[in-house]
Amino acid sequence: MDNLLSEGLSLLVFGMGFVFVFLTLLVISTNFMSKFVGKLFPEAPPVPKKKPVAAAAAAGNNQDELIAVMTAAVHKYRGK
């Protein structure tokens, strides 16, 4: 019985100790990695979102143009 208890206790101490050591190392290496990545591969500044707006505007223009053409066509057809 004592043997089992001491086995449990050593599992508690070593197991918990190891979990902490491992995660501490992970914290350190993660911090290091983040710094490293931040220096070597700085993220490109966010691209200004003008393009999609312009595209949408262009699409809008097209739409207007289309409507104008169609209206003209309909008028011409009715005018016959």
Binding site: L4, L5, E7, G8, L9, L11, L12, G15, M16, V19, F20, F22, L23, T24, L26, V27, T30, N31, S34
Partner: peptide, 23 residues
């Protein structure tokens, strides 16, 4: 990253329960 320590601490439940079962 220091929130990793919280994840480590919560694992004490595992090892305390082993002691409970052994006890």
């Amino acid at each position: 990253p220091k929130t990793l320590f919280l994840g480590a601490a919560a694992q004490f439940g595992i090892f305390a329960t082993i002691m409970g079962a052994v006890g």
